[in-house]
């Protein structure tokens, strides 16, 4: 969090710069069918953002109580929940959590040659409820709830701007370090369940979602209005649809990119070093070239 605070001024400078770049241009073209995705103030956004530990903890609670009944998180291991830069739960608590995780680990063969099921350990993956895609589809009416380990990096928001503001938009994103397209999409999806508009032909068993490509999604609204979970007193936020969606999105963003905190902290050290060295080299070069006419 310290790193976040120190770079915050820089971040706002860049944000202002970015704003300047695009105020001259017309607002992002709101294309016909393409839904407009809001950009959220994620704590981990931009070049200086870091994960909010309390938010990741709440987000894990939402994942555990809501998403985990269908979605696996198998690239994440229980030990990751303890490590720095993540939810940073207590190790003993995660051991206990792993031991009572509903989806057991298949291990073996044992001395009799049979496979057996055992409780997950810290080193095991956060297993989903289904053995494989076929089982998932047969239970979920043909739909496949994807593993969520990489979901925020596997989704994005397209830059649908017209060609003449395409480049300024790109420049703004690069300078402000906008890398939260996947999170913005996921949040919009989780909060995008609506009544299907009149005349919309909704297939049986499908749900209308304003942000899902094609607007028909097999997943029923996972988080109801008012929220799906009870946050603890000291969790730092009140449960609601928006808050749950935001928290679980942040948690999944961490799951997909667990080294983000370390990466951005190193980033500023490296940037500082590079800028100083480049300036030094530039003046050294000037000094050297001052010996000749050029």
């Amino acid at each position: 969090m310290t790193a976040y605070r120190t770079v915050a001024p820089l971040r706002s400078v860049l944000a202002v710069l970015g704003a300047l770049i695009c105020t001259g241009a017309p607002a992002m073209a709101a294309g016909g069918e393409a839904a407009h995705f809001e950009r959220h103030e994620w704590s981990f956004a931009g070049v200086g953002g870091q994960y909010d530990r309390n938010q990741l903890r709440r987000g894990f609670q939402v994942y555990k109580e809501v998403c985990a009944s269908c979605h696996a998180l198998e690239r994440v291991k229980f030990r990751n929940l303890v490590q720095k830069g993540g939810p940073e739960f207590d190790e003993e608590a995660v051991k206990a959590l792993a031991a009572e995780w509903p989806n057991k680990i298949t291990d073996g063969p044992n001395d009799e040659g049979a496979m057996f099921e055992r409780e997950p350990k810290l080193s095991d993956k956060i297993k989903g409820p289904y053995k494989n895609e076929q089982e998932a589809r047969s239970i979920q009416n043909g739909a496949y709830p994807p593993d969520l380990s990489l979901i925020t990096r596997a989704r994005s928001v397209h830059n649908e701007a017209s060609w003449y503001i395409h480049v300024p938009m790109m420049l703004r994103d690069v300078l402000t370090g906008y890398a939260e397209g996947g999170s913005d999409y996921l949040y919009a999806l989780l909060t995008g369940y609506k009544e299907a508009p009149q005349g919309f032909n909704l297939a049986e068993g499908m749900n209308y979602n304003a942000y899902f490509p094609g607007n028909q999604i097999a997943m029923a609204q996972p988080i109801p209005e008012g929220g799906a979970v009870e946050y603890q007193e000291n969790a730092g936020a009140k449960s609601s649809l928006e808050q749950n969606a935001k928290d679980v999105t942040a948690f999944l963003a961490w799951a997909a990119d667990p080294s983000l905190n370390e990466r951005k902290q190193l980033g500023w050290t490296v940037m500082l070093y590079l800028i100083i060295t480049t300036l030094l080299l530039y003046f050294a070069k000037k000094r050297i070239w001052s010996r000749v006419k050029h």
Binding site: I276, A284, R287
Partner: peptide
């Protein structure tokens, strides 16, 4: 001996 050149070289080498 130019301190600027030495400093620039040292900085780039450390990096």
């Amino acid at each position: 001996r130019d301190i600027l050149v030495v400093a620039a070289s040292a900085f780039s080498a450390v990096g």
